Amino acid sequence: MSAPEGPTFRELAVQALSSVQHGYDLLAPKFDHTGYRTPASVLDSVTGALRGLGPFGSGLDVCCGTGAGMGVLRQVCRERITGVDFSAGMLAEGRARTPVAPDAPRTDWVRADVRALPFGPVFDLAVSFGAFGHFLPRELPGLFAQVHSVLRPGGTFAFPIGAPARPGSRHYWELLAFDTAMRVRNALWRPRFVMYYRTFRLAEVREELLRAGFEVELRALEELGRRADGSPRCRLVVATRPV
């Protein structure tokens, strides 16, 4: 899962036996050399879709990590972009890698728990990439309510969600094995490390977004292809706070 510059097996093991926050603090310097970083193909496809919905004034990257989503916001927001994460290590890496350009929007990095966002309704766009596996299903209503609260009326919350692995496929069994291992680990070890790949299901996510007060639209990310049955491999969830 990692490039040669990425973490060793021992480093990943130490991370996995830590809390989520401390684990990412440890992983931060090598995070971008792991398979956990959102692929460029996904980032580019989402950027293209958001260009068709924008431009936007201010943007928020929810659970920004080292800033992959900040690169998307930088291309579609005119005024200001903000990354929020609870890992100081990940924020430090993101801040250090922020390109300096005279025409770039103002960029801020904020350490906070996204379940209690320290902002008012000041954003036109919120995005998130690859972070939802760190939240238990019972936490999604509160998380979505927080994002809803920091968007201006008419604001958009957008994120990609991949098609589920086909039952019986190799990918299906790999994800099942990973989630099972994490559940066993969390039953036997403290602090917990919440990271599950099979708990963020589109139908349930859509229902929770509606409950939080969003209007929800799904858009196929055509650049990422379609499966044999014609369904998209990845969709962009576009949740709008009504005016």
Rank of each mutant, 00 (worst) to 15 (best):
P4V: 10
S41P: 01
A228I: 02
Q15T: 14
V84I: 14
A96K: 11
P55E: 14
F9V: 15
A181R: 13
M182Q: 15
A13T: 15
L151P: 00
Y172F: 15
A220D: 15
V46F: 07
L202M: 12
G54R: 04
A92P: 04
F9K: 13
R206S: 04
L60M: 02
S19E: 10
L26N: 10
A131D: 06
A28M: 02
L140W: 15
G83K: 13
F123H: 03
G54W: 05
R190Q: 15
A16W: 07
A40T: 09
A220G: 08
E223F: 07
R115V: 14
R233G: 11
L27I: 10
A126C: 11
V238F: 00
F178H: 10
A177D: 05
E204G: 09
A40P: 00
R152V: 13
L202C: 06
F144W: 10
R95E: 08
L151Y: 00
A228M: 06
C77M: 04
F214P: 00
L140N: 07
E93Y: 00
R78M: 13
R206E: 15
R74Q: 13
Q21I: 02
R211K: 12
L209E: 00
L210G: 07
P29Q: 08
L125Q: 02
L60E: 00
L26Q: 15
R51P: 01
A239H: 01
F129N: 11
W189Q: 08
G162L: 10
A101G: 14
G162Y: 03
S169R: 05
R233V: 05
D108Y: 09
F144L: 03
C234H: 12
A131E: 07
L27E: 09
R227F: 01
A101R: 09
A145H: 14
T98K: 02
F56W: 09
A3D: 14
F135V: 11
G52W: 03
Y172H: 11
T47I: 02
G52E: 15
P55G: 14
P105S: 09
A145L: 07
S19M: 11
V238P: 03
A96G: 06
L17H: 13
R190Y: 10
A203C: 09
T38Y: 04
P118K: 03
L53V: 08
V100P: 00
E93M: 08
P191V: 11
G142H: 14
T66C: 01
R152W: 06
E217D: 14
V194N: 04
L12S: 06
P153G: 10
L73A: 02
R206C: 05
P191W: 08
F129K: 09
G23Q: 06
V110I: 15
L188G: 05
R166M: 06
I161Q: 12
D103T: 13
V147Q: 02
Q15R: 14
P105D: 01
S18R: 13
V110H: 08
L151T: 00
V76R: 10
S19G: 15
L53A: 11
V110E: 08
V122A: 14
V114Q: 03
Q146G: 15
L117C: 04
L210Q: 12
L221Y: 10
G59F: 04
A220T: 11
S231H: 10
V62K: 03
R183L: 11
F135N: 11
W109C: 03
G67P: 01
V184G: 05
R201S: 03
R78L: 15
G133C: 13
H171T: 08
P242N: 12
V72S: 07
F56T: 01
G94Q: 02
W189A: 08
L12Y: 03
